[in-house]
Design a binder for these strands. Sequence first.
RNA 1: GGCGGCAUAGCCAAGUAGCAAGGCGGCGGUCUGCAAAACCGCUAUUCGCCGGUGCAAAUCCGGCUGCCGCCUCCA
Length: 496
Amino acid sequence: MGLRLYNTLNRKTEDFVPLADPVKIYTCGLTVQSEPHVGHIRAAMIRDILMRWLSHLGYRVMALENFTDVDDKIIEKQKEQKRDWRMIAQDNISTYLSACDQLNITKATFYPRASQHIEEIIALIQRLVDGGSAYEKKGDVYFRVRQFPDYGKLSGKSIDELVSGARIAPTELKEDPLDFALWKAAKPGEPYWFSPWGKGRPGWHIECSAMSMQYLGETFDIHTGGEDLIFPHHENEIAQSVAATGKPFARFWLHNGWVTLTGEKMSKSTGHYSPIKEVLRKYSANVIRMFMLKTHYRKQLEYCCERLDEARAALASIITFLDNVTQRHGEAKPIPEPQMLNEFTDAMNDDLNTSRALSVIYELINRGYGVDEVKIAASVKYYLLLLGFRQQVEVVIEPYRDVMKIVAEVEEKLNIANKQKLLDSMKEWFYHRIIGIKHVDELYPKTIAFLLQMRNELRKEKDYELADYVRKRLLDNNIIVDDQGIDASTYRLEVK
RNA sequence: GGCGGCAUAGCCAAGUAGCAAGGCGGCGGUCUGCAAAACCGCUAUUCGCCGGUGCAAAUCCGGCUGCCGCCUCCA
């Protein structure tokens, strides 16, 4: 069984078969009027998982993620902050891209910006005007919603319901209150571009149609984004695209559930959100990834420290297993073990069920200790990489200085205590072992291993005070010591 | 008001008809100088409530309750 994806278009899980090679994906990215938060990252994470899994299945992937960098809100910000809208946009885009980078989120093939595609946008609007789907009024251009028969299909709304909702801002310029703006005439002081309808700027929605058509063609495979975009944004995208081309637009619509904070949806307009920048200060990329993948992407996800701490604990048990196996048998290459590969694959093929996929990893570990642990570690590593976790190799050089300091401290204490034999072995280690080290990366684990060996000598001599001191000092540097008997102590890095 | 989603153990979370995955936490044990890790065992006779269909329901149908959201800018 191949990949199946839940398609919002008909509320069913369907077999995914791409139109052609490569698979073409469009993700609705940010409107960049304010800083990116955890909710935005979740949407990016879904694109990442989708891209990784498609690649794993052997597809080539072309993915676009847009930035809507000119709209009403950002113009408001410009007025408020007295800063050029382009600067505001660039700041938020930089923050977002650097967070994605830290989080090991696969880069989209291209990140098009609305403001850099005005020509294409104008051409598309012109096409709609020429075809009778849109009309100009005093420099604005509106889309005729009632002329599009399938309007509401994606969001499950009927035009009549929308009218009775009556929350739509009435504008005397619109022929019908349901019509939406494709182009907005510029007011004094606002950014503008020249168009057949005068000075103005694009409305929200049209940029996504124009840019996706430009790079992916008039029909493409998958469109992703947050659930909150279904209406009106994605509904409008479909209407204006299909009205212009007469062809189907995106074939699959994937929508992720939102991230909540104290039970309520994160939203930048209400200020009820956690900026990703802050979250990254407290938790590592792998922990944040674990937090997100533990829940299926279509479900609501509550953001709070307890959830993040739990994700950290869940991740730590996997990492500890891998560390233990590595220290017993050496570094294992990530190779899938056929036994559980089917289960993992089934889970991922079932609408990217990462929660189930993770449980496969735990089941492997549970059966892994003792028997076949090398094979199982190799397999676990393989799955972690598929899910986008970073290898633990990202050990920083920074703690290494302190490790050397600890060696010096121990030396001094041994000196005071008159432990000549241990001092000698210490010196020997330095003069002989250390010279054999070819790379600084080796120095770090080898020095720790030496400290553990030294500590075990102390334990044999029942000098628990100094032995505990070594353990304590290593812990200060996030290195946890596990005694597996008097001669076999291992260490692991505390998961942050 | 209209439309939609969700409700599974202390917490998180899979499961959409055939004996209720997994994680976190907790408890007991083995190991141990201590600690930790690891291992073993236990931790939902029941899936928000009430009815219905079926040999069989967490899963399908109807009703109710609660929470969240969309209908206005939103990932």
